[in-house]
Design a protein around this nucleic acid. Structure first.
Lengths: 105, 105
DNA sequence: ACTATCTGTAAGTGTCTGCTTACGGTTAAG
DNA sequence: CTTAACCGTAAGCAGACACTTACAGATAGT
């Protein structure tokens, strides 16, 4: 599953966002991603697990290596939350202006 | 300033998102928000500081109390990052399909 | 079978985080 | 000036987090 908290937490770390961008460019293996980053390979593996739990990537075993690709689900939940929140804020703004118009001098 | 990491970190905590939603409904004081939540007032104050540092709320002193309202800047940075990332991913998908079409049997 | 490659996982560590209670500071009211 | 209301901040603590090294498992090639 991919709740909102897990997605935001996954996207909050800069290294993890870089890992996600590498995967977004094209499907990559763990070692290939770790080669371009200043952290160890297990660190990348753990980051990928967090991204996978958040529904941001999916993995597929290919022989001895494991290929990760983008999963649109996670980004979808972020966009959905953002849209809903944006609508709520706009509605509140409208109600606020309405109230101000009523009590204005 | 409101960089991407700070915004995502601010939105990753459920309590903090609830605080933000309370503020989004209408401008509120710290004590008013704390009254509707199962955490202490200083906790809410600290949450509001994080939200303010992320550019998600702005504060204004009104006598003895401090009113917080929504700041669209933070949500804007999230939306911008999301849009840019979405475009990148789409472009990568297109390039991937193009490559597959070239090497397909 | 043996070896090399690629990866996940366990264990440990320093740092950050979310929360609490205690305290001090500022403003409005008597 | 004293009092009450409202708030931020300091100090402390349990848990989470990002990272490392060491180890174990699975697959491809010889």
């Amino acid at each position: 599953m991919a709740n909102v908290s897990s997605v935001f937490t996954a996207l909050s770390d800069p290294t993890r966002r870089t890992v996600l961008e590498r995967v977004a460019e094209r499907p990559r293996s763990v070692g290939e991603i770790a080669g371009t980053l200043p952290v160890s390979r297990p660190a990348v593996s753990q980051h990928l697990q967090v991204l996978k739990a958040a529904g941001l990537v999916v993995d597929e075993v290919q022989g001895t290596r494991r290929i990760y690709r983008i999963d649109p689900a996670g980004l979808g939940t972020v966009r959905a939350w953002l849209d809903r929140f944006w609508d709520e804020a706009l509605e509140a703004f409208k109600a606020d202006i309405e109230a101000q118009r009523g009590t204005d001098s």
